[in-house]
Design a protein around this nucleic acid. Structure first.
Length: 267
DNA sequence: CGCAGCGCCTGAAGGC
DNA sequence: TGCCTTCAGGCGCTGC
């Protein structure tokens, strides 16, 4: 449903070989200020496809970068030039070989073109925590980061500040795996250590499975991921916990639907 | 400066 | 069958 780090990473890996070295010879975009900047990339050559959290960063050869955030329903698709444009395509970059399209039914995504590394216009990107697989995402770091606020732990994870790239699905999965209550406002060092490991586990599994497709997510080829079959907690409200058999409960935390196990995840 | 509240969007699903 | 309501929710922005 929602593109989080594993979905964006899957797209990044598929996109690189298809667009690196390609020149953007024509660009069009939906008039909304969320997407209009896409046309500013015209004329540039794509040098690299990187990712930071849930943001895709396409390095351009003029020291700028094209930034794409997929929001809720965003997709990046590489098409043949002859493919008809469907009504939900919000930006279209004609390359010297092929066409890159941004399709987003609900328009929650965002496109920006900025001088490379200048992220002030995207405050959440600018304030991202460490990448989950980098060495600086240590148990100690997570414990300290969570201690800095009294917000519920799940709200903090979704803020992208303790760690980059975790959204609603993988937050529920990681908290379940670590045995941490989503509404907890304090976590012990031991809990933080388990949560650090769980975050890495669920994200790595998501990447290995090519992302989670519940409804909207598709990869660059239009294909589905397979991680929806591996979810232990998210979307399983009223079903038995796979660890203890207790019926999983559904609550609202930080205005987001949240599933957890009342037995395994004590407050 | 941190955080609460709000707005953005539209297809799908459920109720009557 | 068809209309209406509710739901899904990441992030930027505003204001306290």
């Amino acid at each position: 449903m929602v593109p989080e780090l594993p979905e964006v990473e899957t797209i990044r890996r598929q996109l690189g070989p298809r667009v690196i070295g390609r020149r953007i010879v024509e660009a069009t975009a939906h008039e909304s200020p969320k997407f209009a900047a896409a046309v500013a990339a015209r004329g540039a050559v794509i040098e690299a496809v990187d990712r930071r959290g849930k943001y895709l960063l396409l390095a351009l050869d003029d020291d700028r970068e094209l930034i794409v955030h997929l929001g809720m329903t965003g997709r990046l698709l590489v098409q043949a030039a002859a493919t008809p444009v469907d009504p939900y395509v919000r930006a279209r970059w004609v390359l010297d070989d092929g066409v890159l399209e941004y399709r987003d039914v609900r328009r929650f995504g965002r496109i920006a073109v900025v001088p490379r590394g200048e992220h002030a216009s995207l405050p959440t990107l600018a304030a991202q925590g460490p990448e989950p697989f980098d060495g600086d995402f240590t148990p100690e770091h997570l414990w300290r980061a969570l201690r800095a606020s009294t917000m519920p732990v799940k709200v903090q994870l979704l803020s992208q500040r303790p760690v980059a790239g975790v959204g609603n699905i993988y937050a529920d999965e990681a908290l379940w795996q670590a045995g941490v209550h989503p509404s907890a406002r304090r976590v012990t060092k031991a809990q933080a250590a388990r949560l650090r490991d769980a975050i890495r586990d669920v994200l790595a599994q998501g990447i290995a499975n090519g992302g989670t497709t519940l409804r909207d997510y598709r990869n660059v080829e239009g294909g589905s991921g397979e991680n929806q079959h591996a979810l232990a907690c998210y979307g399983r409200g009223d079903e038995p916990c796979l660890r203890c058999g207790t019926t999983l409960r559904r609550i609202v935390v930080g205005a987001r639907g949240t599933t957890f196990c009342p037995t395994c995840q004590k407050r």
